Amino acid sequence: MNDLDDMVRASLAAAADDDVHVERLLAGVRANGSRRRRRRRLIEVTGVVAAVAVVVAGAAVALRPAPDGAPATPSVLPTGRPVPDAVSPLQDPGVVGVAPVLHLTLASVPFPVDTVRYSDEVMPWPIDVADENLLVNGRNGEHVSVRVSTKETGAPKNPSETLTPEAVDVGGVPGQFVRHPGGAFPAGPASSVLTWRAGALYFRLSTSYPDPQQAVALALGVRLDRAHSCGPSFRLPASLTAGLTLQSCRLSFKQGRVNETASQFAGADHRQLSVQVNNAEDPGLQPSGMPALATDVVDGRPVWLIEGYKRATLSLGGAWIQVDGDDWEQVKRVAGAVEPLGFDAQQWPI
């Protein structure tokens, strides 16, 4: 047990018996994480030292000029609400991807930020891999994406060309750098991919910066010691999530404000339930295909129901809420009971 577990138990005890925040599911999530951690071997001491070297170096990232030669403008990324005393993946890789706690972030990026998206996911047997992802888009076309995973993913390849990796040093850890020409995967007129391993963790960074030293400078800013939460940004009665665990989550910002969250739940019988909450102040986030007027009423609420897709969408409390799942009756019940908690991530329960 740790302080985080104590805090979760305290929050559960304080909740009402008949109307419970989705964070009740954290107990099941943490139990799953514990079982996964017991199956994993301990990190070699040398691996821990290497991983710490990468993260500590990130505290003093040498920002490089932007690709067009303009001076670098450091930007600190917005995050969710801090999670005190969370275990770092450097200490236990088994916590990677265990929602709703996010560990992966960057100390800063050398450009003005437009959008930031965090996500994590645990994919159970037979895949048995967990990862966390971060995507940062700049206001002038810059982009950086980072993934930390419990299994090697490797650098993406362009099928039409043979690309030879270049060996680079990432804070004392060997890495491989590949520059993709214009039009190549993953995106943009040109992109670079840097991969490295630190202890039991595998990292992949993709960026619009073409120079290997620019990619390494960004890699040295990767942080795993600033845990924060990706939600939940809504409340549901406990009866509607009984038997489900939180499998993955997503948290997105646009120019510093939360504009979208998503939570994916799974049951022992593999049934799925997802709840996406979009900020209605951004017209581009209105779910596609919604008619001008609601077509149905669920528990007194106007709701758009699409039975063929097992989807329910509603407008409530300044949010567009979309519910999808395998159980159509459950989807409708969730749409009739879900309560958004606003878009200030610092006020959401942990």
Rank of each mutant, 00 (worst) to 15 (best):
S191M: 03
P189V: 06
G154N: 09
G199W: 07
L240Y: 10
R223L: 02
I43T: 15
P71H: 03
D282H: 10
W320Y: 15
A345W: 10
A337C: 01
D282G: 03
T195A: 15
A200F: 01
L251V: 03
D18S: 13
G80T: 10
N133P: 00
R38F: 08
A86W: 06
E307H: 10
L341Q: 10
V87S: 04
A262M: 14
G183H: 07
A10R: 09
P82F: 10
P71D: 07
K332H: 06
N137K: 11
P93T: 13
E132M: 07
I43D: 06
P186L: 09
A70L: 11
D17M: 01
V297I: 14
G141A: 02
N278C: 07
A215W: 10
R301H: 12
H143R: 02
N32F: 07
R41E: 08
T295F: 06
G182M: 04
H180I: 10
G300T: 12
N259S: 09
K157G: 06
Q272P: 00
P340R: 11
R226S: 08
R197P: 00
P237D: 04
D296A: 15
T313L: 11
R35G: 05
D5V: 05
G97P: 01
L90V: 12
K332G: 05
V20Y: 00
V144Y: 01
M123I: 15
W320T: 06
G171E: 04
D18F: 11
E132T: 08
K157W: 05
R271P: 00
R35C: 01
A238R: 11
V52G: 02
V303N: 10
S239A: 15
P232L: 09
S119E: 13
V76S: 03
D326C: 03
G182D: 07
G267T: 15
P74G: 03
N279H: 09
